[in-house]
């Protein structure tokens, strides 16, 4: 008869220990790149942060030892991401509403769901090339070629699937009883969605939107083909139709420069970019936790 006590030597217990440690090690290896990456960028970029960084234009490479600041790129990223959001959020939320509320699971809605999944897997550079072919090479936007507007459009393609999916899934989580309740007091479908189901799904939709924005803000490839880059301050609305700088492309350009000053500026920009994307992600978490708490007061 075997003893009931735990025996270390038993082969099953040894195997158990082995696989437990193996999975812990794998988990650690998986998280290591993130930790290294963030610390490296914090150290390399953090030391470059000065007040001038946020106010100056970048100097052309090779001019002098001072590389200047990232003001145009910072503002450019904000503008391009905003344009992307203005396009992607209404279209994405609207599409999600159609899928979750109106479609009856027919061929058309299945096709859209499939298409959204495919779109989510499209490499970001393809989105850039697509907008390049559609808008820039045709000069369809009032004759302008590379522009912040086109950059925003390219990013909106990348945001769309996230927004549609989270809206669709968020709305599906709203219990049907709530819809019946609203329709039962004589609300139309439109009022029901606007006043009852959408507010109930606000949390997941907002989280999806914020994550979509975070993804778009860090993209480089689509912008290389569309917004290109600019060294100069953004001064007015007209600048939307011209080349526009962005943090991601600034990093891409300046990291490749042979000059130390430009490399340092790229590090500083990386720091700002990582920090802002990180804070946007954290913000989405807080938003989720906050609305979760207030949902059932």
């Amino acid at each position: 008869m075997n003893s009931l006590y735990y025996q270390k030597r038993l082969s099953r217990n040894i195997g158990d220990k082995f696989f437990t440690s193996l999975s812990v090690i794998c988990a650690l290896i998986a998280i290591l790149p993130l930790i290294f990456l963030v610390t490296y960028i914090l150290i390399k970029g953090g030391s470059q942060i000065t007040p001038e960084l946020f106010t100056l234009e970048p100097n052309p490479p090779g001019d002098d030892l001072d590389a200047g600041g990232i003001n145009p790129a910072l503002i450019g990223t904000l503008i391009i991401t905003t344009i992307a959001s203005i396009i992607a959020i209404p279209v994405g939320v609207g599409g999600g509403i159609y899928l979750a509320e109106y479609s009856k699971g027919g061929a058309f809605s299945r096709f859209i769901r499939f298409g959204v999944n495919v779109l989510a897997g499209v490499p970001s550079i393809i989105a850039g090339v697509f907008i390049y072919a559609l808008i820039i090479s045709t000069k369809i936007l009032f004759g302008s070629m590379y522009s912040g507007l086109a950059g925003g459009m390219a990013l909106s393609i990348l945001m769309l699937p996230t927004v549609i999916k989270t809206t669709d899934e968020g709305l599906k989580l709203v219990p049907n009883e709530l819809r019946y309740a609203s329709l039962g007091v004589g609300a139309s479908m439109y009022t029901t969605i606007l006043k009852v189901t959408l507010p109930s799904a606000f949390r997941s939709i907002a989280t999806g939107v914020v994550l979509g924005i975070a993804r778009a803000a860090g993209e480089t490839a689509p912008l290389i083909f569309t917004a290109l880059f600019s060294y100069y301050y953004i001064t007015g609305l007209g600048d939307l139709f011209y080349e526009m700088g962005s943090l991601a492309v600034l990093i891409y350009n300046f990291a490749l420069e042979p000059y130390d000053a430009q490399n340092k500026l790229a590090w500083a920009a990386s720091f700002i970019l990582v920090l802002s994307i990180l804070s946007v992600n954290i913000f989405s978490r807080i938003l989720a936790a906050f609305t979760e708490k207030t949902k059932r007061v």
Binding site: P175, E177, A181, S182, V196, P199, K295
Partner: peptide, 8 residues
């Protein structure tokens, strides 16, 4: 309805 379903 069967289940009480007030609005949130």
């Amino acid at each position: 309805f069967q289940q009480p379903n007030p609005f949130p």
